[in-house]
Design a protein around this nucleic acid. Structure first.
Lengths: 179, 179
DNA sequence: CTCGGCTATATCTGCATTGATATAGTTGTC
DNA sequence: GACAACTATATCAATGCAGATATAGCCGAG
């Protein structure tokens, strides 16, 4: 999808190896993006094919050989082009929201339990994000944005879950199964 | 992933065909889940194999033949089991957040432009979600939760984007609580 | 010296997801 | 009567992504 551009972004400041890139994603980009080696290595090959990165192989002076990738001028241009694009609306499936949508199917006491469990899980995840080592500049801005999102969801669950278990008030969907 | 359980959820109240399920996802579940026919039809076959749904074929009385699926008792049990599970923390890659994280790479005036564009895109998406026909019960709760998340992100971008463009020379606060 | 853990490369399998295509009847419009 | 839009089934290819595995050298602890 946009993994290639994420890699360009991570290579913007300093050259890195595939391994470095995986670590940087885990440590600097955590909630925003993640990818494993099986994606990163082929993606790097693609970037190279397009001339967006250049490869320098370091002989095994100390440890295993390293493949260091650095941005080319074309790569830098492409990164800036991508950043200037109109961002497409995110459309990923969210299991948590889907569960929430089907809570009608549970008897009332279990609904409560499920809502509490969802709240606890969110809380744990927020704590995890807060505990991550602070990444610099816009990286930390992105991370705080992610925390903000999750906290808004949690606030909503706590308020809405207690106040509005809307059963059959709304327009009951006509099943339109006549035939 | 959890598409099978989403289908069980949609079949909870009334039997539906594959086509109905696709429409229901678009209309009732919109930001929470989406899937095309190429996922739905094989998934339905899987549900049938597991005994969670039963199939009734309606002859072409009017129009093409319909394959109506309904939940079995085992399917109902499985749906409730899934809803009671501990929800896994969501971990999807978010292109919008990733872009935000790399805004360092743009010269300042273009950063502004990019932030404004992101805000506008968010605004459009929120308007789209608000305009969707209201789904009943917990469906609408899930949709409002999704809107809440997006609005929190937007608030953050408006505030943080204007007030705190943390440069790479910013105060590197490294001495958190050392323990 | 050995073992476990870390750095580092890379591949394979399988499932999830998207988008395109094929087939075919029904309904409504001009 | 032609044509478009909708209902309805289903498959295919390509890509995204997660998890496991293979190889191999380095380093510190015991």
């Amino acid at each position: 999808m946009s993994l290639p551009h994420v890699l360009l972004g991570l290579l913007h400041e300093i050259p890195r190896s595939g391994y470095d890139l995986a670590r940087a994603m885990r440590e600097e980009l955590d909630p925003a993006w993640n990818a494993g080696f099986s994606q990163i290595y082929p993606a790097l090959a693609g970037l190279r094919r397009r001339g967006w990165v250049a490869l320098r192989v370091l002989g095994p002076l100390r440890g295993p050989r390293r493949h260091l990738y650095r941005l080319t001028a074309a790569g830098r241009r492409e990164l800036r082009r991508w950043l200037g694009e109109i961002p497409p609306p995110p459309r990923h499936n969210d299991e948590g929201l889907a569960r929430l949508a089907f809570l009608d199917a549970l008897p009332i006491p279990e609904r409560r339990k499920a809502l509490l469990a969802a709240d606890a899980a969110l809380s744990t995840e927020i704590a995890r994000l807060r505990a991550l080592s602070p990444a610099g500049g816009f990286r930390s801005l992105a991370r705080r944005a992610a925390i903000e999102e999750r906290e808004a969801l949690r606030r909503f669950l706590r308020a809405g879950g207690a106040a509005a278990p809307p059963s059959e008030t709304g327009p009951r969907r006509e099943a339109r199964k006549k035939r």
